[in-house]
Amino acid sequence: MVGQSQMTFTAAFSSYIPVFKGSAGPLIGPVTGFKDHFGTDGLGDVLENSEVWKGQIQKEHAVHAMIRLVNENQGEVSLIALGPLANLALAVRLDPSLPQKLKDLYIMGGNMEGKGNLTPSGEFNFSMDAESAYVVLEEYTCSTHIATWEFTCRNKLSWDCFEELVNQDTSAARFIKMITSKCWAYSREPHINNKVFLFGNGFVPYDAFAVAACVDSSVITERLQCAVRVEVQGQLGRGMMVVDAANTLKKGNLAFVMRTCDLKKFSLMLKAALQIA
């Protein structure tokens, strides 16, 4: 799916994966476009014709498609959320029973140490739509696994690993090398606004951590099961995910917050994923 929230379904689908367009912006507030991270087209602004892929978009809205597919495959769908969570929040409002029909939910977003990359204490995906993040973490009571920003940065890979990945002689590797060639997100030089360097230089494939955890849970070697909640108020705290290890919030649904990763296994999974001729 494409749109503000990017999601991947893992279910008993055919080899053809349909693409659906989702929410254009957050539940509350204006639509704010960030173009410096992955370019104006989300693919690094290096494709000769970035409009071609839009012909693959289905007419059905992503939220309706998600509800339909989950209902058709109850207990079989793993939902992976790799952006702001408007689509998930809208889906649970339309179908409150949706979370109970999921196998599990994997999220790349939020933080666990009060460090932010969009605001002083808020991670990008959650801060861009704090209300949606709040709704999802409160109302998706299925097994929920979170790859936070600090987790991904603390489990970074080397740039040598990145070179090995993208220099494989496959079409997938060549494509990734091309679309990351001019991306600010893949810069190796410290920038004043590049907060990855709070954790040291390195290659951080943010979203891939959540996908890898869904594909093979053993790649995550340590996780904390705890209550989590997103702050929606405050000038500095809005969008921050609060990790409540003692569960003073008295929540019944506890999330699994990823802590450490088997980097050797993770890098091998990334390499295998790009071995498409």
Rank of each mutant, 00 (worst) to 15 (best):
Y140K: 05
N247E: 09
S187A: 13
M7H: 02
A11H: 07
I220K: 04
K195N: 13
L118A: 02
K182H: 12
R68M: 06
C161T: 15
I220V: 15
A11D: 02
T119L: 12
V204P: 03
T8F: 12
H145A: 04
L274G: 07
Y16M: 09
I67G: 11
G114L: 00
F13G: 13
D216T: 04
L47M: 12
S158A: 06
K156S: 14
E163F: 09
N49P: 14
Q58M: 12
G234P: 10
A272N: 10
V63P: 01
D262M: 00
V230E: 01
G114V: 02
S23H: 08
G234D: 09
V77T: 04
Y106F: 14
L82Y: 04
E150N: 14
C153Y: 01
K35N: 14
E76H: 08
F13I: 05
T144N: 03
C214Y: 00
L94T: 07
L105I: 02
K271C: 10
I176Y: 12
K271G: 14
M7K: 00
P18W: 14
T221F: 13
W184H: 05
D207K: 03
W184V: 02
L88N: 06
V232R: 04
Q225R: 15
Q56P: 00
N247Q: 09
D244Q: 05
L94Q: 10
V166L: 04
H64E: 15
T180G: 07
D169C: 08
V46K: 08
C183K: 03
A185S: 12
A130I: 02
